[in-house]
Amino acid sequence: MKIVVSGGGTGGHIYPALALIREIQKEASEAEFLYIGTEKGLESSIVSRENIPFKSIHITGFQRKLSFENVKTIFRFLKGVRDSKRLLKEFNADIVIGTGGYVCGPVVYAAAKLGIPTIIHEQNSVPGLTNKFLSKYVDRIAICFEEAAPFFPKDKVVLTGNPRASEVLGHDGTKGRLSAGLKINQPVVLIVGGSRGAKPINEAVLKSLAELGEKPYQVLYITGDVHYDEVQKEVALIGSPKNVIIKPFIYNMPEILSGTDLTVARAGATTLAELTSLGIPSILIPSPYVTNNHQEKNAKALSEHGAAVLLLESELTGKKLTEQMDQILMDKKKLSEMKNAAKELGIPDAANRLYALMKELVNKK
Rank of each mutant, 00 (worst) to 15 (best):
V264A: 02
F33E: 07
G279F: 01
P150R: 09
G176I: 11
V168A: 02
S48T: 15
I238S: 01
V192P: 00
I283N: 03
A17G: 14
Q327L: 02
K297A: 11
E211C: 01
E323M: 04
L18T: 09
G181E: 07
F33V: 08
V192Y: 09
K320P: 00
G239S: 02
E214G: 05
N131P: 02
V231I: 15
H58G: 01
P53C: 13
K359P: 00
T160P: 13
P286K: 06
T130A: 06
R266N: 05
N252E: 10
G193Y: 03
K72N: 06
L88P: 05
E234M: 10
I52L: 12
E255W: 07
G100S: 08
V189K: 03
G176V: 10
V188C: 13
T174Q: 12
V362D: 07
G161S: 03
S179R: 13
I36N: 11
L66G: 11
L18G: 06
E69N: 02
G105N: 12
I256F: 08
L237H: 12
I280L: 05
L272A: 03
G193C: 06
L18S: 08
L321P: 03
M358P: 01
A19H: 04
N202M: 01
G197V: 03
L312W: 08
N252T: 05
G100D: 04
P348A: 07
M325W: 00
G181L: 07
V192E: 00
E122F: 08
V4N: 12
G193E: 02
L345G: 13
M338A: 08
N243T: 06
P127K: 13
T174A: 13
F75W: 08
I141M: 11
S336V: 00
S314R: 15
Q232K: 15
G224S: 04
G41S: 15
G80H: 05
G181A: 06
K199S: 11
